[in-house]
């Protein structure tokens, strides 16, 4: 993965739904902003392109593991080339709620070749820090399912025909993603965060790691005279 000519830093969080990673990265963002650093936040959400295609794909059952993977890679590339990369080049700290490891996990569970997936995302820079939120599958499922939320078709892995019951399908799908994450973070480096700890403790651990690994004073917003925050 390319690394030259980039002054910024990339911090990613990964983990199961219900691991609390989104809460933690938002807290990290608030902290960095209030400290006066150049920060940009991006999430692994779906643009119009993906939403349209997945809606169409679901209705007509068009999507296969390969096209599902490719369309998300297309979407990510768009976000990467138009937001993430320019801001990294501009010296920002970019915070990513989910990164390519999400695709590695989810698409491998759907049957895509692991080596093919790593090649597919070769254009994307490796994070400077990846936080992996660890907790047991049962706790993660409990946190998500206790409110009986409305699960989306693909989010629950309904395309995999694990079960006709959407909650049952979600559990099986998440279990497989859990296993795949374990494999991925043997292959790639990650800072492990114990997602069972109190929220403020997790946040304190993350801030310590960021302070240790990133020279933060280099990322201060330079304000012109007379300009406030």
């Amino acid at each position: 993965m390319p690394t030259n000519e980039i002054d910024g830093k990339l911090i990613a969080v990964e983990g199961l739904d219900g691991s609390g990673k989104s809460t933690q990265i938002r807290l990290l963002k608030r902290w960095l902003e209030l400290e006066g650093y150049k920060v940009f936040f991006t999430e692994w959400n779906s643009s119009d392109l993906v939403r349209q295609a997945t809606r169409k794909g679901k209705k007509k059952k068009l999507l296969t593991p390969t096209t599902f993977s490719l369309i998300h890679a297309t979407d990510f590339a768009d976000r990467y080339e138009r937001q993430i990369l320019p801001l990294l080049k501009g010296g920002y700290i970019v915070l990513a709620d989910r990164y390519v490891y999400t695709a590695f996990a989810r698409d491998a569970v759907r049957g895509c070749d692991r080596d093919w997936l790593r090649k597919l995302y070769r254009f994307a820079r490796k994070p400077d820090i990846t936080f992996f939120f660890e907790l047991s599958l049962d706790v993660a499922l409990g946190r998500i399912l206790e409110g009986r939320p409305t699960l989306k078709f693909h989010e629950a892995g309904m395309d995999m025909n694990f079960s006709n019951d959407i909650y049952e399908s979600f559990k099986i799908f998440q279990g497989k993603i859990y296993e795949e994450y374990g494999r991925i973070f043997k292959e790639f480096p990650a800072e492990r965060i114990n997602a069972i700890l109190p929220s403020e403790q997790q946040q304190a651990n993350m801030r310590d790691i960021v302070k240790k690994r990133i020279n933060l004073p280099g990322f201060k917003l330079r304000l012109k005279k007379g300009e406030g925050l």
Binding site: T67, L70, I71, T74, Y80, E81, F123
Partner: peptide, 15 residues
């Protein structure tokens, strides 16, 4: 951008 376009065409081809 270039990478996006390439992957978009790859999706179209794969389908």
């Amino acid at each position: 951008t270039a990478t996006t376009l390439k992957l978009f065409y790859a999706t179209d081809f794969a389908d």
